[in-house]
Design a protein around this nucleic acid. Sequence first.
DNA 1: TGTACATCAGTGAACGCGCGTTCACTGATGTAC
DNA 2: TGTACATCAGTGAACGCGCGTTCACTGATGTAC
Lengths: 208, 208
Amino acid sequence: MRESRSGQSTESSAPVTPKGRSSKEALLRAGGLVAERRGIAGLSVAAVTREAGLAKATFYVYFPDRESFIDALHQRFYKDVNEAVAAAVLGLPPGRAQLLAAIEAYLDVCLENRAVKALVFETRAQSSLTTTMEEREAMFVQLAEPCTRAMKLKPAQVFARLAVALASETALIEMESARKVPGARKAIGALLAAPAQPHATKLERRAH
Amino acid sequence: MRESRSGQSTESSAPVTPKGRSSKEALLRAGGLVAERRGIAGLSVAAVTREAGLAKATFYVYFPDRESFIDALHQRFYKDVNEAVAAAVLGLPPGRAQLLAAIEAYLDVCLENRAVKALVFETRAQSSLTTTMEEREAMFVQLAEPCTRAMKLKPAQVFARLAVALASETALIEMESARKVPGARKAIGALLAAPAQPHATKLERRAH
DNA sequence: TGTACATCAGTGAACGCGCGTTCACTGATGTAC
DNA sequence: TGTACATCAGTGAACGCGCGTTCACTGATGTAC
């Protein structure tokens, strides 16, 4: 509403000293740990500040309320993903190769941000999404759609959503074993290799 | 812990009169409505009883606690799914046709139980799953695995999970538009038509 | 060097609120004699 | 037919609890003169 200087609505006030910055950082890091252990329902202000070793009231020095804090965690994750994906697809034209490269980059970032990815997955299901959070969610599909379109998969948007779902499920598989699962990554490639011929579903290819 | 007679831990005590049965039914139906509107976090005892037009205390006549109630909703949904899927795959051998038939049946049940399906999707992400709920969740993958195995998709379990993820995402798509989305159903068929040849991911098929 | 002041980080204690749950109780219905 | 009793459904009011949030305040640091 007010936010005179920065314009970032997820921050109560930006810290100006190094100590302040590190406290805010500590809160966000603690948020990741708590989210991993207790999920979104357990992501209380009390739990986060306890984990960070700060007083509850300190939380409100850096974030206007709980929702903004969750949004900030969300935002961070997507910033990481965006950068990694952008770097990975650099120079690749929309199509299967670009889509798979983007998914690979996404999976790598998920592995580095296990805690937050879990939170993202939870948040997705709930109606408690901020408008900005919903927009970030839709981003993936928007990014994938030109690829499915170039692959002549119709309807392109539906295939884009399904591709994102495959990536998301694979991220979960990898989170469970806490490492890359090449079999799963290859599986995505195999499924997305299907030619979109209308009669494909009625044909048996291998079995004579 | 005790539960002398029925052995069903999700019920505080089974109603014996028709009136009692209808009250319990009203609570479960109200639970579905509230879950659809407010999600799992909004599925409070107060909200459910308000919706059902009963006193809060009445809730505890039929359910030992809130968790058991959610579990009961969960259980109902899976019972419906199980029956529909079992009927749909009757006589079909494990394989692509069986898998697609099962998914079709699953999607139909989801459309009839929009509220509860949303709840299931939410619950899946949270750590708050009961043991029995986790078991019900794993059921889908167990059912799909013989099919992916028969389709020579390796690793079969990974493909089974991805197939379930595709079905789940399609259920969400259909819930959003509140009706069947044939394009999405066909898309699943197209993706699951991919032959599992090891080099498939490196080949471009159509583009010369 | 000493002191007055502004700035920012940080906090203990309290607030109201809605939650899940329990309690002691009422009222209706059916059966026994 | 009348009455005593058991059974079950259902409830209003209260309970403690943990939550998010606010308040008035302290302490440390840096700068001005």
